[in-house]
Design a protein around this nucleic acid. Structure first.
Lengths: 219, 219
DNA sequence: GATTGTATAATTGTATACGAAAATACAATT
DNA sequence: AATTGTATTTTCGTATACAATTATACAATC
């Protein structure tokens, strides 16, 4: 009976647990829920207006991601990400981004190369336009395209997870001077390695890019 | 003193979804469920004698691990691990094991060093005894001790996940000639790098170890 | 025979019910 | 005041109920 009163303005073709997972990730990573904090199921149900079943499914996924810890009969507790964790994560991400670009340069198909080129051209365009919002999205697409070109399913998934972890980290820092053009240069160096088909060059360019990103985000 | 090296995958006092997750991981990775296969909830409920709630929670965790894919209103399908996936995973694991040993050698505490030494001595003992079963467990403990000594929470978790993925991969191959003494030599080289406090040496030894392990398992 | 439409069954997504464990409140005791 | 014991409430883990979607069976049509 209650089904008939669901909010039909929000057309969602995903189960509640999926969209809920994204919201909980966001609210943990943005610090709305603090590390150590107890996540009481009923409270969350009220807050997100969902029932316990999808909520618990989302909590189990957060647990698999390591953002939440579950203690038997006592509930879920926020783990979250410490500064140390972000530092560690950047180092781990660097290792994989470098591997990804090496593999990608060796394995990229013509189609994938065209797509990467297209993305890079959009990057140049939106950098000129100084459209930071669009750049956030295209930046993600650029890296994602490299992951795909690596033709390594597991690497691709893992790096996507890392992107998710990092996307809420100090997003306002992007407004600093020369942010866009600096990042564009770094991406250009990576893209050039693809046109040169030089994996070593790509690895170096990516290492520089991630190191700079780490400095930008972690100070 | 063997209680220190017991296989902790079987936790008696844990929610059903946790032990069920381990069983499902095993049954997917050992090929009982084939890639592409539909996992019907009710069938699984009957087979594992659980209700749908903990089953679905386990399925959501498998989904987060990438072993299962969920399609809205159509159910869960096995992804599993292809030969290519195992190859990729070994390369990814290598990158992280090398990082882990580098960090661990720089950061290991005296206590952790004593523990590592103890584990290594048990390794020597059970290699002499040719006790393959015990060695499997201690081998895992040795690597786990290094993960802990790296003092990187995220790395530790990720490498544990990889160990889980790999532990069902061709376990019978360990019965080949000189398996135990070969592995002991590789581990000795890694352990020596710890006593030498030489991270570079440790990285090289670990790289060799993982490469050999990959050859042994993937051929 | 192939195709379409429709009724039925099966399965999923979600909500709720219920027993068990843990947290809490509070009186009794020291 | 601090501590212990107990009753009550809360919360969790699990089972089950129900609505919505998808799959299946099968008759009607071409």
């Amino acid at each position: 009976m209650l089904y008939k009163f669901t909010d039909e303005t929000e057309i969602s073709n995903a189960p509640i647990s999926t969209s809920l997972l994204a919201k909980l990730q966001r609210d943990i990573l943005t610090g709305k829920f603090k590390p150590g904090q107890k996540l009481t199921e009923q409270d969350l149900c009220r807050e997100y207006e969902v029932s316990r079943t999808p909520l618990r499914e989302a909590l189990r996924q957060l647990e698999a991601d390591g953002l939440v810890e579950n203690i038997l009969n006592r509930g879920s507790f926020v783990i979250g990400m410490s500064d140390q964790d972000y530092n560690d994560l950047f180092e781990m991400r660097k290792a994989y981004e470098v591997q990804a670009v090496e593999w990608a340069i060796d394995r990229i198909t013509e189609e994938e190369m065209e797509r990467l080129e297209e993305i890079f051209e959009f990057m140049e365009f939106y950098t000129m336009r100084n459209d930071i919002e669009k750049m956030q999205v295209i930046n993600s697409s650029f890296h994602q395209a490299i992951y795909e070109a690596s033709h390594n399913r597991i690497l691709q998934k893992q790096l996507s997870v890392y992107q998710n972890y990092l996307k809420y980290k100090d997003p306002e820092r992007v407004y600093e001077d020369n942010y866009l053009s600096t990042v564009l240069q770094e991406h250009r160096a990576i893209f050039k390695a693809f046109t040169d088909k030089n994996a070593r060059e790509g690895a170096l360019a990516m290492e520089i890019h991630i190191n700079r990103a780490k400095e930008r985000h972690c100070r």
